[in-house]
Design a protein around this nucleic acid. Structure first.
Lengths: 346, 346
DNA sequence: AAGTCATGCTAAACCCATTTAGCACGCACC
DNA sequence: GGTGCGTGCTAAATGGGTTTAGCATGACTT
């Protein structure tokens, strides 16, 4: 509309006061002794001119830009974890902040460049996010800049937000138990490498640990474990076919993720085995897929949005440190049978 | 590292020159008469201090912030179109820019707020993106700020980037033709509302138009059209069941999107109909799903990344106007039979 | 009448860069 | 010796805000 933006000086002029007065009034400075009349005039002038402060100019003086940097390896772009961004954007908006999103593809040179770029813009804090939780290398950052790791950990920056995978693992087992399963439970996807590896994913190991804890607490054991390296539908399909051709006593499948479960569905459908009447399936992530499957896949969700939100809350609170674990919601659909059970008494 | 960032004044002091000289040298001003010695000293000082200009301060003077605003209804967060962001980030990085991502959920109030927020930060330009191409309402933006519509159109801002849906529609038909299909082709999902509607999607109507053109150019007609309002797997499943229970002559399915095709796969599997031996399927979008299906779904891809890239290129070039149509790649997988054909001669 | 104090406001410095205008110097030339 | 000019550099204004220090004014003391 108007060709030029109104400045504070414009407001002051219109109100017949100094920029100093206008600034104090608009910022609601507490101990000022400006008259009610001055307040009214300045507010009216600001209103009339549609005045909005120039954030860059203000940031120059105050070192606050109401802007945060979100640097990820690949998270923003990938459909898998875009919830992290969504949550971050929401929380930022709620706090009147705005977010600068950068991607590095995991390349250290681009990472350094990205950090420099956001620092050049005086961000109030930086969130580092990774798609697969892992120990993330982070170049030096000037002390005084708040940092939160999202779905990642780092020795130099202790504040990090992670999914509560251990509890999630337990929850998955519990779901099967509640469905009446005690025998014929197989684990699909777990893999010794994964169980140790902290590079690929710091948290999946906890997932497995939670699962094992859940089973042993219930006095149960898997009747089969099908190890898979790449957790994609095709591998899930093959492993499931192999498993069911080898044995006939499988009544429940605990899959390490939804894509694997998707492959399992395909295999079972071809084999004429019905979910959940013949075998129950539970899984992890709550991928887009899970809702599309027939019957709907019951899964322990990766709480991406909540994590993203939490990360900026922590960042803006300023006193973050240590791991904050975000609960993984269980989303029940129709892939687990509910058999009549005789609950053990006493 | 160092507790304070080096400023231009620091560099000048260390070089024994004025900030003016330092600024000119570091910016490579052409007509300056500063000595080689001065150049060397300033460059050395900048190097030594790890000097990086403060973008906000510079922007205050030059009105260039090397920052662009990306405002979307819901595109950043949703897995469906996160490619738009990815492409935009890539192109921005290549041009030394950085992007501020905001989401509005399509709410006009939040839209206005988002625009104000990026304007407050002096962005060099704004991209408005929508998930489903449609006519987007955009509040007033001061003249002089570059604007590009991404996957959307707007009367006030003519520059827009859209997928070339018409050509895509034709391509889908061509794929079926190349597979030897002439009879028994059904259309799944098209819907009169959609075919007219410019609010829900300006481009899907073109998709349908391209399809119809492709068919009529080949002298063909659909043997059945199954209209669907909501393009989700469940609806595709139901429509496909209904279709195949009604008739037995369907040999190819042209689906309006991959999720519908997914539902079709489920129905066909249950019906014991084989893809592609009994019926071929072709579809649109190249959703994550398409690669996971068995057999892989052949589909006309929505070129999200290319579109995102194009949008920032246009924005930064500054002289954008009119529609720029981005080609939709055909991604061939295994859902179309290749039957022997007797091509019509002459 | 001089001193004290509260009240209401403003001048000017500052943040960090860019940019315009122009100074000082040396040399050549008439 | 004055004028003109090229060379090499800098002072100061500028952009838009925040913040510190302090100036008037009038009322109230004593």
């Amino acid at each position: 509309m108007s060709s030029k933006r109104a400045t504070l000086a414009d407001v002051a002029r219109l109100a017949g006061l100094s920029p100093t007065a206008a600034s104090m009034i608009l910022n609601g400075r507490p101990d000022t002794r400006l008259s009610q009349d001055a307040h009214d005039r300045v507010n009216a002038a600001a209103q009339a001119l549609g005045y909005r402060p120039n954030v860059a100019a203000r940031g120059l003086r105050t070192d606050k830009t109401l802007t945060i940097g979100f640097i990820s390896d690949v998270v923003a772009t990938t459909r898998f974890a875009s919830g992290l961004i969504k949550g971050a954007l929401e929380a930022a908006e709620a706090a009147g902040h705005v977010v600068l999103v950068l991607e590095t593809g995991g390349d250290p040179a681009r990472e350094a460049e990205a950090i420099a770029a956001v620092l050049d813009r005086q961000v109030d804090g930086i969130i580092f996010a990774t798609m697969r939780a892992r120990e993330l290398f982070v170049p030096d950052i000037p002390a005084g800049t708040a940092v939160v790791m999202l779905n990642a950990t780092n020795p130099k920056h202790s504040a990090s937000v992670l999914p509560d995978e251990f509890a999630g693992g337990e929850a998955a087992v519990r779901l099967l138990l509640e469905g009446g399963h005690r025998d014929g439970i197989a684990l699909l996807g777990q893999n010794d490498e994964v169980e140790r590896d902290t590079f690929r994913s710091a948290t999946v190991a906890r997932r497995v640990a939670g699962i094992r804890k859940g089973m042993s607490d219930a006095g149960l054991a898997f009747v089969a474990e099908e190890s898979i390296w790449l957790w994609e539908p095709d591998e899930g399909y093959k492993a499931t076919r192999a498993l069911f051709e080898r044995r006939t006593d499988i009544r429940a499948l605990l899959c390490m993720n939804d894509r694997l479960a998707f492959g399992a569905y395909q295999a079972l459908t071809e084999l004429g085995i019905s979910v959940p009447d013949d075998v129950s399936i539970v899984s992890f992530d709550n991928d887009e897929l899970a809702a599309y499957l027939r019957p709907g896949l019951t899964t322990i969700a990766l709480p991406h949005e909540a994590m993203g939100r939490r990360a900026v809350e922590l960042l803006l609170a300023g006193d973050a440190s240590g791991e904050t674990l975000v609960p993984m919601p269980t989303v029940k659909r129709a892939s687990i049978a509910s058999r009549a059970v005789n609950p053990a008494r006493g």
